[in-house]
């Protein structure tokens, strides 16, 4: 009994279990400015994890296009605006909306939509060049979006 509970807790911690409060990508409610009011995972984000997601080439890799002085990741890009001070410029709901689908806030943005699963032209199976199959998921999970948002909120000048 106790062992089962611990196992369940571990699964929740690893994100393997989708909580009842998780909003699926097709059900996200954006307001007219592209903001999302409520947590997509139903839980708070972890800024330390968010910093890792933003630096990791295999995850968000936000620094591919954005410069963030507080992150030590090498070769930060300059395609998008610097994110220094992002926590001053945007509130949490705005940040969540931009990370999940920036095109809802900035219609012409080049930024990929990190919490979206439909509406693509020739979606692929990751970087294989082959067509997407039933393993297709959003670029980040609901909790990863929350973690990134939590980190961005700490970027104050």
């Amino acid at each position: 009994m106790k062992r089962t509970l611990i196992l369940a807790a571990a699964l929740i911690g690893s994100g393997a279990v989708v909580s009842a409060q998780t909003v699926s990508p097709d059900d996200v409610a954006y307001d007219e400015y592209g903001s999302i009011e409520v947590s997509l995972s139903g839980a708070a984000g972890d800024p330390a994890v968010g910093a890792e997601i933003m630096s990791d080439r295999g995850q968000g890799n936000c620094v591919a296009c954005h410069q963030v002085s507080a992150l030590t990741a090498a070769f930060q890009g300059n395609i998008g605006p610097s994110l220094d001070g992002a926590g001053d410029r945007w509130d949490e709901a705005q940040l969540r909306g931009i990370v999940a689908d920036a095109k809802m806030t900035f219609p012409d943005s080049m930024m990929p939509s990190f919490y979206k699963v439909s509406g693509f032209i020739r979606p692929g199976n990751a970087y294989t060049g082959k067509a997407a199959d039933d393993t297709f998921t959003s670029l980040l999970t609901a909790q990863q979006i929350e973690d990134v948002v939590a980190y961005l909120a700490t970027l104050k000048e």
Binding site: P112, F120, I121, G124, A132, L139
Partner: peptide, 18 residues
């Protein structure tokens, strides 16, 4: 694709950037 990138996004709008 899932990243919704055209040739122009990188090679017309952002050439010389990193």
């Amino acid at each position: 694709g899932q990243l919704e990138l055209s040739c122009a996004n990188c090679h017309e709008d952002n050439y010389d950037n990193n």
